[in-house]
């Protein structure tokens, strides 16, 4: 490991307090993110991947969200213990986030330019660059940002409204806004799910390019294993609020070890092997109001045995691969 990690989760637990009881959305996850690394988080609906991202940004309303233990360390600070004013200066300036549906995050009644300038000015007020921009300079900077994300004709786009842009262009605008505070970490929550494949390819290429140019760390949250393979170095596979496998791209696809990871890979139609028989994973996610004791995958696992009623630890089985399963040998 080269440098010390930029972001660390240490046994983080998060519950949602609902009328039906305590929903254990995240149950003790730990991982490190190194500077410049691109980490993918994959899993199905309801596995806690978006909640993980939102808890980094402190975007979950409390109540109902309630941190039940552990910590999130960013650059030497525990994000869970910081004052809200400190968090405000971290959000956007040091950590930025882009979301799935770009239209929902742009205000339809203001021009793109107005919204970008707003973001730029808001951040420099709390800023850490030590310079103060006039609104004219902010407009100029906004155009530079749009140019950086390869939006054609930035001057004209600054004056257009969100509905005049296509989905791919809107996502580029959001990325430009996310970059305005010169963050160290970019969290992308399903950034291409709403886009067509050709546009998705463009956006993924842009993210990889910016990452290299600006030495960004990226957390890419997605349910698409193909997307992960294209842009990430390392992957966390999440299931029911726990990390079941933490592996480099190479290990994940060549030696998938957790039964859930293997199940996921078997469920995806492989463009190279069209006649491959698809296998679903039988059953459904356990109810997290009352999760099974021990390994949460045991209810759907074909090789579950008695020891699975105790929680397996995330053990290193090879270089660059950790798995939480009793049946995967550490020998």
């Amino acid at each position: 490991m080269p440098d010390k990690p930029i972001l660390s989760f240490i046994d983080f637990k998060l519950n949602f307090d609902t009328f039906d009881g305590v929903y254990q959305a995240i149950d003790g996850i730990s991982f490190d993110l190194n500077p410049g690394e691109s980490l993918g988080i994959v899993g199905e609906t309801g596995c806690g991947k978006s909640v993980t991202a939102k808890s980094i940004m402190g975007l979950l309303p409390s109540p109902p969200a309630e941190v039940a233990g552990g910590g999130i360390w960013f650059d030497g600070r525990n994000l869970l213990k910081e004052k809200s004013s400190t968090l405000k200066s971290i959000r956007g300036n040091e950590i930025s986030m882009i979301f799935q549906d770009p239209m929902t995050y742009l205000n339809p009644v203001f021009t793109i330019g107005k919204q970008i300038v707003d973001v730029i000015l808001a951040h420099q007020k709390r800023g850490n660059h030590g310079r103060s921009l006039t609104s004219k300079q902010a407009f100029q900077y906004g155009m530079e940002l749009l140019d950086k994300v390869h939006l054609p004709n930035p001057r004209r786009q600054m004056k257009s409204y969100p509905h005049e842009l296509s989905g791919g262009m809107r996502q580029r605008v959001l990325i430009a806004m996310a970059l305005s505070g010169q963050p160290k970490l970019l969290i992308a929550d399903e950034p291409t799910t709403a886009l067509d494949v050709t546009i998705q390819a463009q956006i993924l290429e842009l993210i990889s390019e910016l990452r290299e140019q600006l030495n960004l760390s990226v957390i890419m949250i997605t349910h698409d294993l193909g997307v992960v393979a294209t842009v990430c170095d390392r992957v966390l596979v999440m299931y029911a609020g726990q990390i079941v496998e933490d592996a480099s791209i190479k290990q994940l696809f060549n030696n998938p070890s957790h039964p859930y990871t293997r199940g996921l890979l078997q469920a995806v139609p492989d463009p190279a092997k069209p006649n491959k028989k698809l296998k679903g994973i039988p059953g459904a996610l356990p109810n997290l109001l009352n999760p099974p004791i021990g390994c949460r995958f045991q209810t759907r696992c074909s090789s579950a045995s008695e020891k699975c009623t105790r929680m397996p630890a995330l053990n290193k089985i090879r270089t660059n691969q950790k798995v939480a399963c009793w049946n995967v040998g550490t020998t």
């Binding site: 998705q200 698409d224 193909g226 294209t230 696809f253 060549n254 463009p271």
Partner: peptide
């Protein structure tokens, strides 16, 4: 182009 744009779920692209 459409076929080339599918992200391939594998270790090597």
């Amino acid at each position: 182009a459409l076929l080339g744009a599918i992200p391939y779920p594998g270790a090597t692209q």
